[in-house]
Computed example of a mutant assay.
Amino acid sequence: MITKDNYANDIKPYQPKPKLLKNCLKAFVVGGIICAIGQGLTIFYIEVFGFTEKTAGNPVVTTLIFIAALLTGFGVYDKIGQFAGAGSAVPVTGFANSITSAALEHKSEGIVLGVATNMFKLAGSVIVFGTVSAYIVGVIRYLVEQFL
Rank of each mutant, 00 (worst) to 15 (best):
V128I: 15
A84K: 03
T62Q: 08
Y142M: 14
S98L: 10
I80R: 02
F129C: 15
V90H: 01
G130V: 07
G81Q: 11
L104G: 06
M119V: 09
E145P: 01
I65C: 01
S98G: 12
R141H: 11
V128S: 03
V60H: 00
K79N: 12
T55D: 15
A116G: 04
E109R: 10
A84T: 06
L71V: 14
I136E: 06
V61Q: 11
V137M: 14
G94T: 04
F129Y: 12
A123V: 08
T55E: 13
L143H: 06
S98V: 11
M119R: 03
G85R: 10
G81P: 04
S108N: 14
V126E: 14
F147P: 02
T62I: 13
I136R: 06
G75Y: 07
K107N: 13
K54N: 14
L71F: 03
I67A: 01
S101L: 09
I99L: 10
G75A: 07
A89F: 00
T131N: 07
I80L: 04
H106C: 04
S98H: 04
K107E: 10
T100Y: 00
G124E: 09
L70S: 05
A56E: 09
S88I: 06
T62Y: 04
F83L: 13
I140D: 11
F74Q: 14
A102P: 03
R141Q: 12
I65H: 00
S101M: 05
A56L: 08
V144S: 10
L71R: 05
L104P: 14
S108H: 15
F66Y: 03
V115T: 15
A123Y: 03
L113R: 07
K107S: 11
L64W: 00
T63D: 11
V60P: 02
F66A: 06
F74Y: 08
L71P: 15
S125M: 08
S108I: 11
N97V: 11
V132Y: 02
A103K: 08
A96F: 02
I99Y: 01
A68Y: 00
V60K: 01
V112I: 15
F147R: 15
F83C: 04
G75L: 10
E145Y: 01
